[in-house]
Amino acid sequence: MDLRIDPLQARLAEAVDTALTRTGDVYAELAALGVPGLGAPQSLGGLGLGLSADIMVNARLGHGLEPLGAYRETVLVLELLEETGVAEPLLEEVLKGQRHAATAGVHTDTGLRVDAEGRLWGDSEHLPVGDFGLVVARATAHDGTTRPYVVTPDPTTCAVETGSLLRLPTVRLRFSGARAEALDLPAERWSRALDAARVRQAAVLLGLADRALAVARSHVNRRVQYGSPLVNLQTVSHGLARLVGEADGWRLLLHEVAWHRDQGRGNPADAARLLAVAAEHALLCTRKALQLHGVRGMLAHSTAATAYRLASVEAARTGAPAVLWARATPHPAATGLTSFR
């Protein structure tokens, strides 16, 4: 057991930080690092570095206040379609970062439906902004069964509508008879891919939380009230110190869950539980950062306000924390309270 960031993880984090400082297309900058293929299966042409690498990328995206949800949606679709032989030419484009992929109705029920001719109808949930060339939609067929379908969006049957959540840009896909190909996915593949998506989402949220804490820390050292920096007030410093301590614990847990997934181990509820705590932690940290900034934090484009909006949307993107806790509750007899076995 070694609880220090390893050199590969450190280099990846540094590379993502550098990519985020460049002014060009951030997706293209990341593609140059091998994203999104970094953690994607080698059978699809990915690097197969696994979640232990992917969480470093996502944590730094969160810290950089560039969550880039289309990237995580793309990786999720790549993992769902592994070894299915479906949409292979498109997958190649997606893997190179030239197009994005998305899921619709997978994280939340959107009421999408497929008619007897195999055509998809209905609206997706709010999706992160992206250039979507491929969609995996979970929809209900005319016979009442619910299953995943692969859709290649075509402007004649899939309109892209712009929207916003907390004033952050989103898109919604409006399907009006899009050709949908039923996907026969083993349940194990489905749950494994969704769990991995939860781990990546937790990484983004913990990165966002770290940024909020860093911003708050910087502010309370600079802002002088009553003749002293705010950080010298114990009500301020203890509140932040608690969150710093929680952050350390959740970060280690993130790495452990990712590592176990990479080894093909782990309890079924681990990923949902990790995402639930990461979501709540991100909300707490961003709210604390706003509180400590006072009114100036409430300015529309303050970093604290931006972190607050981003963390809120990302915390609920794959399900509200309350819903995640429901997924994270194994029967008490299966709590697996042993540490190393």
Binding site: M1, D2, L3, R4, G245, E246, D248, G249, W250, L252, L253, E256, A269, R273, L274, A276, V277, W325, A326, A328, T329, P330, H331, P332, T335, L337, S339
Partner: peptide
Amino acid sequence: ELAGLARHQARLDASRLLTCRALQ
């Protein structure tokens, strides 16, 4: 109750890892 159990289990896991980090 089950959600409470899951919450405490998650924090317990984090405690274990922080302890291991200090011991390392």
